[in-house]
Structures are given as C-alpha cells and as structure tokens.
Amino acid sequence: MWEEKVSVKGPYHFDSALLRLARDPLHIINEEERSIKIPIYKEAPEIADIQAIGTVNEPLFLVRGKNKDTKHLIMERISTIFQWDLPLGDIHSHFSKTALKEVFEQHKGTPIVLEFDLYPALIRPIIHQQVNTSFAISLTDQFVRTFGYEIEGVPFFPDPKTVSGLRPDQLKDLRFSRRKAEYLIDLSKLLSKGELNLKNLAEKTDEEVIKELTAIRGIGPWTAQSFLLFGLGRKNLFPMADVGLQNALKKLHKLDRKPTVKDMEAYTKEWYPYLSYASLYLWRSIE
C-alpha cells in the first residue's frame, strides 16, 4: 500500500466535481468521505482512491494505491484526469469580465474531470447520441456491467477487442439501436486492429482530430468534440450542436427561442481561449 498527499492551487471545488460525477452509477463515490475510486486502465488494471481533505481555496488530497511500482504512473494519470496542474483562479479571473461572471461565481472552482481512459471517452458520446441523458446513462451502465469487468467493486469498460467480437444483437438486447451497435463494434474493430490509435491523437490539433474521427462511420462533430474535451482535455471546445448548451444560453440571455449558430459565435468570442470551461459552467447552470 502507498499513500500520497497532494496540494493543489485553489480554487478547486472537488465536492462540486463529485456531485456531477455522482449522476453516473459507474462512478464509485462516497460523498460523506469526499472520495472516489478511480479505475486505472493499463495492462494490469488497478484501483486508486482519492479523498479530499482540504477546502475549495486550499485544496488538499490523499491518493492511495496498492502497488508501489506503479505509483508514479497512477499519480500522473490522476493529475491529468482531475486537471490538477491547471490554475482555475486564472480561468475564473478571465470569466469575471464576461457575461458568464455570475455563473462562474456560483460554481467557482469546479474543474473539468476527464474520462478515466481514452476508449470510454470516445464510445460514451456515441452511446449518448440522440437519446436523453437519463436513458444514455442507463444504457452506458448496462453496457459496462454486461461486457466490462469489476475490480474491488469498481466497474471497468470493456476493451476494444472484447467489443469488436460482439454481435449487434447482443447490444440490441440492451436496447441499443442496431445502427448504434454497429458503430460501436466497427469502431472497436478499427482500434483492436491498430487502424486507429487514440493516444496518437493527443499529438494532433483539434481540427486534425475532428477530421480523422469524423471520417469514421457513427462519429460526427459533436462526438469528436466531446472526445477532445473529456478525453484529451482540450481547453477551447464549445460543441454548438449540444442541446444542453443551447438551453443554457437560452436561459442566460432570456431568449424566447434557442440561439442560432450565429448567436453562439457572437456569445463565445469573449470566452476564448477557455471555451471548454464556458461549456462546463453553462452545463452546470441548468443541471
């Protein structure tokens, strides 16, 4: 066993992040203890535990694991997932001069938390396409619990090789549409054959990633942007086709209709280069 204490520059509202993550039953969270168990995806998967012991303005965390040989890798991965190296105070100051000032005050210090691995970061938005949020969460939960695995009660997504070997009917039994089932299986075949490498995408620009991913059947701009935001942690993403963002802007600006793309382009000009945080805080404003 090992334990590491980590200090992060405030503000950092871990409890707000946990509240958002707790909507997904695949996340093993103890809100009273302010902790979450993280699946670490690697050749020999393992679990890490994060507990907040500090405050929003003076964040402090305990990270625990079992294998001392992988401690450095786990600490690096967790720091990336929870964006501990990004000073949220600078982002807050930026938005204090914009139309999102009050939204950022209300949710001050809420971080973007990345998906725990790149493969889930790409297949989750495919599962979420064109269905409401509660059904999408249920569908993802069934998919993982049926075809994935658990370690110490923590669910892991199945790997691409496992999914590539499924038949569409197996996913249809979980209430997937046949088309969506085919998207997941075909994508997983590309990954398992090495024809698509998600880690290599991290070296490419946003535009290059979107171009490469949208060439794949079943992946449109919204899915590619979601992968960039929650998979690769890109800072300047605003998925304009996202219904939640459209509704949040409608509420913010007291519109009698959803904003047009031209409207959104005008609104977002003052939010560069942190559009991803504008996206997160607008989502938080209607959740």
Rank of each mutant, 00 (worst) to 15 (best):
Y12L: 13
Y12V: 09
H13R: 14
F14Q: 03
A17T: 03
P25S: 05
H27G: 00
H27F: 12
N30E: 04
E31F: 03
E31R: 09
E31K: 13
R34E: 00
I36C: 01
K37L: 08
I38P: 00
I38Q: 03
I40D: 02
I40V: 13
E43G: 15
A44Q: 12
P45W: 09
I47E: 08
D49P: 00
I50T: 07
I50M: 11
I50P: 01
A52M: 14
I53M: 06
G54M: 07
T55P: 12
V56A: 10
L60G: 03
F61K: 08
V63C: 04
R64K: 14
R64P: 04
K66S: 01
K68R: 11
T70K: 12
K71F: 00
L73G: 02
I78V: 14
S79F: 01
F82I: 03
F82K: 06
Q83S: 15
W84R: 06
W84G: 04
W84E: 05
G89R: 15
S93W: 09
H94E: 12
L100C: 09
V103Y: 10
H107Y: 15
K108F: 05
V113K: 11
L114N: 11
E115P: 02
D117I: 04
D117W: 06
L118D: 03
Y119V: 04
P120Q: 01
R124Q: 11
I126L: 04
H128I: 07
N132G: 04
A136Y: 02
I137P: 10
